[in-house]
């Protein structure tokens, strides 16, 4: 029972718990916080598996950018749960069907993983713990994976442009979500 394994189990449990909460919480803000917790646990698992740089990138990109975007959106849209008429989940049969589907899928993946393990070569204990060092990553990115690397930048550019175009306001539409329609720009009110 090495410390590595203990930490692994700990963080794994944390990740799964966080994931369950992401699905289960009613208030979307709570969902976001649970997601943050999951991100951190997963990042820790990365470190334990010899990819510290990726752990950092995970925190920065996922927790620091994506999650912020999500929270912004939640705040912008002033979402509130629950309104009495709305129920959180779909109807019961849909829940059962989804549950079954996901259990089956999960089972398949586990099985796949288990079989993969059987054919994986024996671990090289003596090898350096850290695999994905920045140097190694850099070598790979600017070597073998140069093209995807450049394409990724194009993709991000496209995403930026897309986001800007999609959210452009048509003329005369209200500037803030809850503001009454009026001419000209107006400051967004705080959600009540």
């Amino acid at each position: 029972m090495t410390p590595a394994i203990v930490l692994c189990v700990l963080f794994a449990a944390g990740a799964i718990a966080g994931g369950a909460n992401v699905v289960a919480q009613r208030n979307p803000v709570n969902n976001a916080i649970a997601l943050l917790f999951t991100f951190i646990c997963v990042a820790s698992l990365y470190i334990l598996h010899g990819a510290p740089m990726l752990a950092m990138i995970q925190i920065i990109v996922y927790a620091g950018a994506i999650l912020i975007l999500v929270v912004f959106t939640i705040m912008l849209l002033a979402l509130r749960e629950p309104e009495a008429a709305l129920t959180r989940f779909w109807t019961f049969p849909q829940k059962i069907a989804s549950l079954l589907a996901c259990i089956v899928l999960g089972g398949q993946l586990l099985y796949l993983g288990w079989r993969a393990v059987a054919v994986a070569p024996a671990a090289d204990v003596a090898a350096a713990r850290e695999l994905a060092s920045p140097a190694a990553l850099g070598r790979a990115l600017f070597g073998h994976y140069l093209l995807p690397f450049e394409m990724a930048s194009v993709l991000l550019l496209a995403a930026i442009l897309g986001a800007v175009v999609l959210t452009r306001r048509p003329k005369g539409a209200p500037t803030a979500v809850n503001a009454p329609p009026d001419e000209g720009p107006s400051t967004p009110e705080a959600p009540s």
Partner: peptide, 18 residues
Amino acid sequence: LSILIGATLLLGYVLWPF
């Protein structure tokens, strides 16, 4: 749901020989 079920079936088909 249909996408998911499709993926499940596909995975099942691939995993079947094992």
